[in-house]
């Protein structure tokens, strides 16, 4: 029995170790290829580590490819989307969770069923519309469609529903107004889901590709992923340069995630287990 247990244990460790190596390998290769000299990543057998590391590809990205600008665009868009959507979604989520009003169930059902509609359906008319409003190739072009998310409203509603009504009643008896309750009672209590949603939204916005590609018609407005795909079109032969670009695109989200992973992972659980 004892023998069998330890046998199982080592088997498990071996498997997990292998799985971890396989999961990390693409990242490790990306990092090392990005500092290989030109042509270094196209050799047989492939090298895992560069013989003579070089920063030239990063330097090229910074000097010639305007990467700082793309980085700033990504930051501005992601931060704006996160903040505005958090505000709008939490207000709506609160209304759905704690108010009764005519049409509530119908509206909520409508929203829920709308979650089945793939976003791509809206893209063509949306583009024409934003264009009429003069918002194509501005940050608003990305921010506006990202301002709300039905999923976000849904998650916040689920969470706020678990806040006891008695707390709200008590506040109301104390003379607090609706908005005051929302701002000073509900938002602090809903902090876990808000932090989570903020992270989700930020990363989603950072990683988003298709819509920014469509709506940012000007080179100077590209976000990092669009710029990277753009680079891929022109420099597909330069494996090492592309890897350096991938590193720069991935690094910021990775840092944000590592700093806040507790909230992120806890949030996924909140979102699904409350189902």
């Amino acid at each position: 029995m004892k023998f069998k247990k330890s046998y199982q244990k080592y088997g498990l460790y071996l498997l997990m170790f292998l799985a971890a190596v396989l999961t990390l390998a693409p990242f490790v290769w990306m990092l090392s290829a990005s500092i290989m000299p030109e042509g270094g990543a196209n050799q047989f057998p492939p090298r895992l580590f560069p013989k003579t590391p070089t920063w030239e590809h990063y330097q090229r990205l910074f000097r010639q490819m305007n990467i700082v600008r793309y980085f700033l665009n990504s930051v501005i868009v992601a931060v704006s989307v996160t903040f505005i959507s958090l505000l709008f979604n939490s207000m709506a989520g609160y209304a759905f969770a704690k108010y009764r009003f005519p049409g509530k169930n119908k509206l909520f059902k409508l929203l829920l069923s709308a979650m089945v509609i793939p976003a791509q359906v809206t893209m063509l008319p949306l583009f024409l519309m934003l264009n009429r409003m003069g918002l194509v190739n501005t940050y608003w072009g990305i921010i506006i469609p990202g301002m709300t998310s039905i999923y976000g409203i849904f998650l916040i509603r689920q969470y706020i529903m678990s806040i006891p009504d008695s707390l709200i009643e008590a506040a109301r008896i104390d003379g607090a107004t609706d908005f005051y309750i929302y701002l000073r009672l509900i938002l602090p209590l809903a902090k876990p889901i808000l932090v989570t949603l903020a992270l989700f939204t930020f990363m989603g916005s950072w990683n988003d590709f298709l819509w920014p590609l469509i709506v940012m018609t000007g080179d100077s407005m590209y976000t990092l992923p669009v710029a990277l795909a753009n680079l891929m079109g022109e420099h597909a032969q330069d494996t090492e340069l592309m890897m350096a670009g991938a590193v720069i695109t991935i690094l910021p989200v990775l840092i944000v995630f590592l700093a806040m992973q507790k909230y992120y992972i806890r949030g996924i659980m909140l979102g699904s287990v409350k189902e």
């Binding site: 501005i76 903040f83 505005i84 940050y139 608003w140 407005m221």
Partner: peptide
């Protein structure tokens, strides 16, 4: 924050 976003937009 919205004002800030507006500002950024205006800049660009």
């Amino acid at each position: 924050l919205p004002a800030l976003i507006l500002f950024f937009n205006a800049c660009h």
